[in-house]
Simulated assay, not measured.
Amino acid sequence: MTTEVPTADWIDPVTMNADPYPSYRRLRQESPVAWVPALGQFLATGYRACRAIEDDQRSFSAGCTSGTSAKMARALGGQPMVNKDDPDHTHERRVINPGLRPKQLRDRWTPVFEANARTYLETLREHGPDDADLNRDYAAPVAARNLIDLLGFRDVEVDVMREWSNAFVSGVGNLFDDPETWKRNDRACAEVGAVLDELVPYYRSHPDDSMISALANAELTDEQILANVNLTITGGMNEPQHAVTSTVWALDRHREQRDQTLDDPALWPAVFDETVRWLSPIGMYPRQATEDVVLNGVTVPEGALIGVVVAAANRDNGEFERGEEFDIHRPKRPHLAFGSGVHMCAGHWAARIAIGEIAVPLLYGELPGFRPDTRRDESWFGWFFRGLTELPVTWD
């Protein structure tokens, strides 16, 4: 197989964790669909290839049972909806859709999102302006608290939610089966399961507008509920958390655009959208070929695993003019940071509102001269999931 298709035998997962974008650029230029021996799968990095995969559930299944998808099922305690094809995907997805629509989010959850942001703004103030870290003191706890409230976790602390999310992110990305990673992951899965054992019966007799209540009162098995709650803990914290830090980082490196946004707050939605395109927090998701299929001129054999690398596709110059550049004024075009088609992230409006309209603008509105603190080191990690793990900040 590897002698008949483009092969990227130069890919190094360790290098990708440090900074995947040079590798993405080379893949798009040389072979937007390529077999990667180090990962045991194909990677699709071109925009059109990634869209073609998402638009064709018959040829490219989300319900694969090996490779990255198997890691996800192993990590989350079952196969979540994101790794299922229709009609099974739609059956589970329709359960949570009503609570995540824009009007419901704005009417019910905007006050909650703002209260949570203001709570942790005070935590940030307590550490600053000389020892504040945006991820530790604000982005992560805001994302965790919002998620606790949306899901309906009663009496779960922010630090516990952070631990669960980190454990699931590590488990889903545990490509080389590190035993310590699985140990942390399994402990988190057991802890969430124990909480759900109490909450599911409670919400069946006391329904409300939380996500766990919606899942508990649908025709789903306990395993389906657990897998989908764990999925939400994974992406529902990871993406908003990294969207906060990435936005601040990007604006600091494009200060003219930052100043334009501070002068015109109507630009904040564009800032959020461009940030998640340019620095996609969720970099890749899995698919499996159900038959021999030609993708971008490359024959992908039946059963082959494919990584849909949306973080690379979102910078494809063939789809986005000057795609490698950050530009909040670029013509609006659909990107893949939240997926696409039937599998588009159910929580994308929650992230847009909670982070793009509330959490990030609040920082600049309340902290004069707010900016990254160049006196201290920042830290990035990951490519399957990618974001700043440390971003020191300061203000005047």
Rank of each mutant, 00 (worst) to 15 (best):
G323M: 08
G365T: 09
G341R: 10
L363M: 06
A359C: 13
K332D: 00
L367W: 15
A351M: 00
C345T: 05
L367C: 06
P334H: 00
A354P: 15
G339S: 09
G323E: 10
R333F: 11
A351K: 02
S340L: 07
E324F: 05
P334I: 06
I353W: 03
R333I: 09
L363E: 14
R333T: 09
R352W: 03
P334T: 06
G347M: 03
K332C: 02
E324S: 01
W349K: 08
E357F: 01
A346W: 11
E357P: 07
L367V: 07
G356D: 07
S340C: 07
P331W: 15
H335S: 07
K332E: 02
D327I: 00
H329Y: 11
G347V: 04
I328R: 10
S340F: 08
E357I: 06
A350K: 06
F326D: 12
R330N: 12
I328Y: 08
A346N: 09
E366V: 06
A350H: 11
R322I: 11
A351H: 12
V342L: 09
L362W: 05
L336M: 12
S340H: 03
I358M: 13
G339V: 04
I355Q: 03
A359S: 14
E366K: 03
P331S: 11
M344V: 14
A346R: 02
I358N: 14
W349F: 07
A346F: 12
G323K: 02
I328Q: 13
S340M: 11
P334K: 10
G365P: 04
H335Q: 11
R352T: 01
A346C: 00
L362F: 09
E324R: 06
A337F: 10
G339C: 11
S340G: 11
R352N: 00
R333Q: 15
G341N: 06
I328F: 12
I328D: 07
E366Q: 10
Y364H: 12
W349V: 02
A337E: 04
M344A: 08
K332M: 00
R352P: 04
S340V: 01
A350S: 14
